[in-house]
Amino acid sequence: MADKGPIGVFDSGYGGLTVLKEIVAQLPAYDYIYLGDNARAPYGTRSFETVYQYTLQCVEWFFRQGCHLVILACNTASAKALRSIQQNDLQQLAPGKRVLGVIRPTSERIGEYTRSGSVGVLGTKGTVQSGSYVIEIEKFHPAVKVYQEACPMWVPLVENNEYETEGADYFIQKHLQNLFAQSEEIDTVLLACTHYPLLRSKIEAHLPQGKQLLSQGEIVAASLQDYLQRHPEIESNCTKGGKASFYTTDSTEDFDNHASRFYGKQVRSEHVNL
């Protein structure tokens, strides 16, 4: 039998730490290993082929660390790379291992939140252009209408620690206005980027009254818990020591300085070359 290993959590940068934070809160017994491909971030503006190649390299790295399950806690990677990896690469790389994303579990649940049947999706340009949320939500909730708005300045605002400034207010107000100009029936707004929870208080301040805001972390964590219960063959290969390790492809000093804002506490990372 193959050696057991931690659960891998991947993002192009820091944003996936907001998802890992919720996963650890709900499933604290497991070991986790986080990789941020900061040296090549952001992924949101890159082509499908480039995102696929980068993500595949990172998945292969996780497998070499002994991971049997890898979560792509990155909407862009989930939109542009996950399906190709699942359908074309896993069988050759490691047929007994699994790679999951954040778009499907969020799409499965979002219909439970909307009353009007109209949902707004705020994401990066890459996620919006992929149409992944429109496609996936239609599979699970065909009656729900989905409206999208790309917010290209939001990730730079967060990563440059400008997310509490008046400049952030301007860009948040602009994109919310663009979203609701598409339909006033939207009653549920999804933050379809793992960076966006850091902007949550400002987004809520500009959100029209009576609208609800969803971030992905809690939904993805609950989905992972359900997945592990339904797949004991994967769960049994996940080690349980309550430990989280952090890696980055860029400066560990920069990663550690930024990571605490996303993860909620200090981390100490190690550098890795891919």
Rank of each mutant, 00 (worst) to 15 (best):
Q91N: 08
R268Q: 04
P152R: 15
C58G: 02
D37P: 14
M153A: 15
G217V: 00
V9E: 00
L224E: 00
T165N: 12
V24G: 00
E112T: 14
R64E: 06
I7E: 02
S118M: 14
L93R: 06
Y170A: 14
C238P: 15
T45P: 02
H271W: 15
Q173H: 12
R261V: 05
K125G: 09
G131N: 10
A222G: 14
W154S: 12
S245M: 13
S236G: 13
W154A: 06
Y52N: 03
F10P: 00
A2V: 04
V128K: 00
G117Y: 11
H231A: 04
G13F: 02
T194D: 01
Y227F: 11
G217L: 01
L213P: 15
E185C: 08
W154Q: 10
H141Q: 06
T249C: 07
R268W: 09
L157I: 12
G126L: 01
E108S: 09
Y147S: 08
H258Q: 15
L93D: 05
W61K: 11
K21S: 00
C193S: 04
V220P: 00
I103M: 08
E159R: 01
V119C: 06
I234R: 03
A73S: 06
F62Q: 03
E204M: 04
L214G: 08
Q92M: 04
Q87E: 15
G241S: 10
E233H: 12
E108G: 03
Y54E: 09
C67V: 03
E60V: 15
Y133D: 09
Q86C: 14
E184W: 06
V267E: 01
P232K: 14
V134P: 03
Y170G: 05
F255H: 05
H231R: 13
L179D: 04
Y196N: 13
F48D: 12
E164N: 10
W61H: 04
L213D: 10
Q65M: 07
A39S: 12
V155N: 03
Q148N: 09
Y43M: 05
Q266W: 04
A168M: 12
Y32I: 01
G15S: 14
R230F: 08
K174V: 03
Y170L: 07
Y196W: 09
E233G: 09
L90Y: 06
A181G: 05
Q92T: 11
Y247G: 02
E253I: 05
C74Y: 06
R104L: 03
I203D: 02
L27C: 04
P6N: 01
E270A: 12
S215Q: 09
L56N: 04
I219N: 01
K21V: 01
T239I: 15
F180A: 08
N160E: 15
Y196A: 14
G264W: 08
K243S: 14
Y43G: 07
L191G: 02
E184Y: 05
E49H: 09
S236E: 13
V24Y: 00
V155R: 05
E136D: 11
T76S: 08
V59D: 01
T188P: 06
Q209C: 09
D3G: 09
D254L: 04
L228Q: 08
Y263P: 01
T124Q: 10
M1P: 07
G44F: 01
G111I: 04
N38Y: 08
F180G: 05
D187E: 08
C193M: 15
L69P: 00
T124S: 05
G120A: 05
I234Y: 12
H195G: 09
V189P: 02
Q229D: 13
S12N: 10
Q173C: 13
A150M: 05
H271R: 13
L20Y: 00
